[in-house]
């Protein structure tokens, strides 16, 4: 049950959200899940190199609504990638809590987190990270294969996605046979394969030519309408302009939060 001050206590920290005091705990979680894709509180992430500690994320708390297009911007080395990795379940914080669709992922064991990641996120890496020995089509099919989709459906979906990416005629090609822009498009197709509720992208237009960057920008604009939640770390002004909320990140901290579109 929530306390008088509208805070919900857990074992470690308080999470402050606006709640209806009359709603019981189970329903409270349902409401959180319905409204929020991510809630995190007091996140810390340190990297130890010998005696030297690099604090990449420093006491970050934020909430992301379902369907929100969040942009995280900031200078190089601010900690954007680390924050993205934490939100996407690729890494776990040293302390703090992350709830994603009502599931506390910050304490999850690696295996559970892996399965969670497969079904709930589509991650687009800055350096594409395609599996080097699989063709474009096979790379897109891979997450569906893990999710137990039938081969026929995998094939159809992969074809559909690659067609969307204008890569139908390149589906039999290996990553090294594709240009940077083409690899990035395959990576986006792969991220969309299992229809995840959340897409995370780390500098998706970095190091790409103007034409490809524009293609990807248009794609994200389209995704904004199709996909529930998008979180992007970027310097791209066009993508920033698509945002519902912009977080300015520097030195591991959120230095500014700009709400462009308020959610009811």
């Amino acid at each position: 049950m929530p306390d008088k001050d509208n805070s919900y206590k857990n074992n470690e920290q308080e999470i402050s959200v606006e709640v209806d005091k009359t709603i019981p705990k189970v329903d409270f979680l349902k409401e959180i899940t319905a409204k929020y894709a991510i809630i995190c509180e007091g996140l810390f992430k340190d990297y130890e190199i010998g005696n030297f500690i690099v604090r990449a994320v420093d006491n970050v708390s934020l909430s992301i609504r379902n369907g929100e297009f969040l942009v995280i911007k900031g200078p190089s080395g601010a900690g954007k990638t680390t924050l993205l990795n934490l939100l996407g379940g690729l890494d776990t914080p040293n302390s703090g809590i992350i709830y994603s669709y009502g599931v506390k992922i910050s304490d999850m064991k690696e295996e559970s987190l892996t399965t969670w990641r497969l079904l709930n996120t589509g991650f687009i890496f800055q350096n594409y990270n395609l599996i080097s020995t699989l063709t474009a089509e096979e790379n897109v099919m891979f997450p569906m294969n893990l999710a137990g989709v039938t081969f026929k459906d995998q094939r159809n979906r992969a074809e559909e996605l690659l067609k969307k990416m204008s890569l139908s005629d390149r589906r039999e090609h290996l990553p090294f046979q594709l240009s940077a822009g083409e690899q990035q498009r395959v990576a986006i197709a792969r991220a969309l394969a299992n229809n995840p509720p959340m897409i995370l992208a780390d500098e998706p237009t970095a190091n790409l030519d103007k034409k490809t960057s524009q293609f990807i920008r248009d794609l994200f604009k389209e995704l904004k309408d199709d996909i529930n939640t998008i979180i992007i770390a970027t310097h791209d002004d066009y993508l920033i302009n698509l945002a519902d909320k912009i977080l300015s990140f520097d030195d591991g901290k959120i230095v500014n939060e700009e709400i462009i579109r308020k959610f009811e």
Binding site: L90, T114, L118, F123, N129, L130, I131, S132, R190
Partner: peptide, 16 residues
């Protein structure tokens, strides 16, 4: 190792 890491990030379980 790199390919293994990529597969892990996509959601491949250790057994797989």
């Amino acid at each position: 190792k790199k390919d293994i890491a990529i597969m892990k990030s996509l959601g491949t379980l250790p057994q797989k």
